[in-house]
Design a protein around this nucleic acid. Structure first.
Lengths: 224, 224
DNA sequence: ACCTGAACACCGTTCAAGT
DNA sequence: ACCTGAACACCGTTCAAGT
């Protein structure tokens, strides 16, 4: 026992929260392609089979990561303000959170976001809609439409190199599109610059979100 | 040489098209989790390294599959009819194609759909927008918004077990949501039935699509 | 030009065994 | 209860060698 470190606790004890945190770090620093249970174990200074005491599988771990990230979305807690404004704010907040975790965002399509935090989010969204006069059916669909739009948008956005990370992917795509033969793809070439421009996408996201909420409103009106 | 089969050609010669077709079959029959280059090679009665003569990597093969599927989307060829109706039809057609290839749909978020067929689709969409009076910038964003919405929606839709395949996934989710404690998740439980009902989603998809196109229209108007 | 055998450097996961 | 060693059954990909 080395002197001067009388109470060195060694690496902290393993639990699901610590595993999730390390997994998020590993995804963020090394990317999804480099992620593996063995590397995650190494980052935690542990052997990989130990992970399976705390987590059933890699897939379940990914579900956990998604739910952890969803847990950081601020939910409106009162019940004041028009329903569409509240859902618009929630959509914007969800996108911001997903852009901050691009790899987790890309994990989401293909998954069903019904961990504790995902359920809390669903409960809130469906509640807002029902209290605004949507019947159960339309409220359920409204939730799905909102989630599909926001998650789908954010997941693809990060793939284009938008989002905070790798701007070099952006310029690579931009060069490719801009270098296309202009006689064959005149329209793509003309728009190549903006296909890979960053700031305008947030406006377009909001535009689509507003359009969807307007559509829901018309849906509600025609149902009564 | 066996009699009666004087010209048996054996398994047809390998090429990218045959590889792509076999890969699509394998994905459809065995699912994405079971897909591997080695199994694909086995299905083609070939050893896996042979694949690498025709295709640089598994990732490039997946890009090829995406582009092949995009190639089956019918593009409007004339230039008549209002722009928003044409894009609406194209969005609906793209979704139909993606639902017919759920695994490929789930491959798309995270990819950049710029193979030959993807470019042809982009060229068409951006062209429709520019001829409708959108400037280059808004036309580019309009294309992105449309693609993000349709692809994101379809990818997540298939994950819910909607789409033609596995209805048992749907009922599993439905049971889970319906069995939740009603005091804690009253809204989710109330809407559980429709979160997993099939036919209404197509209407909601259209509703969102229409809302997005309306939003683009307002965007165009305010830009001049 | 196209295909294979053999190999490299990995995977996720299980399970008996240790503490 | 929690962690490890050893192993199983795989992966994607490379590359020298065959035809």
């Amino acid at each position: 026992m080395p002197l001067g470190l009388p109470d060195d606790p060694g690496p902290a004890r393993l639990d699901r929260a610590r595993i999730a945190r390390a997994a998020l770090d590993l995804l963020r620093t090394d990317g999804a392609d480099a992620f593996s249970m063995r590397r995650l174990a190494a980052a935690l200074q542990i052997k990989s089979p130990s992970l399976y005491w705390h987590v059933r599988s890699k897939d379940e771990l990914f579900d956990l990561l998604v739910d952890d990230v969803l847990g950081t979305v601020p939910l409106p807690d009162g019940d004041d303000g028009p329903w569409d404004e509240r859902l618009r704010d929630l959509g914007l907040a969800l996108r911001r959170v997903l852009l901050a975790h691009p790899d987790v965002a890309r994990l989401m399509p293909g998954r069903t976001p019904f961990g504790p935090n995902g359920l809390a989010l669903a409960e809130r969204v469906i509640g807002v809609l029902r209290r605004a006069g949507f019947d159960d059916r339309l409220a359920g669909y409204g939730y799905l439409l909102l989630m599909f739009y926001v998650v789908g948008f954010a997941a693809q956005e990060t793939a284009f190199g938008k989002g905070p990370d790798n701007p070099e992917r952006l310029t690579e795509i931009s060069r490719f599109l801009g270098g296309l033969p202009a006689d064959r793809y005149p329209n793509v070439v003309a728009a190549a610059g903006t296909l890979t421009g960053r700031p305008g996408l947030t406006d377009r996201f909001e535009l689509g979100l507003t359009g969807i909420l307007n559509g829901l409103d018309r849906d509600r009106a025609s149902s009564r």
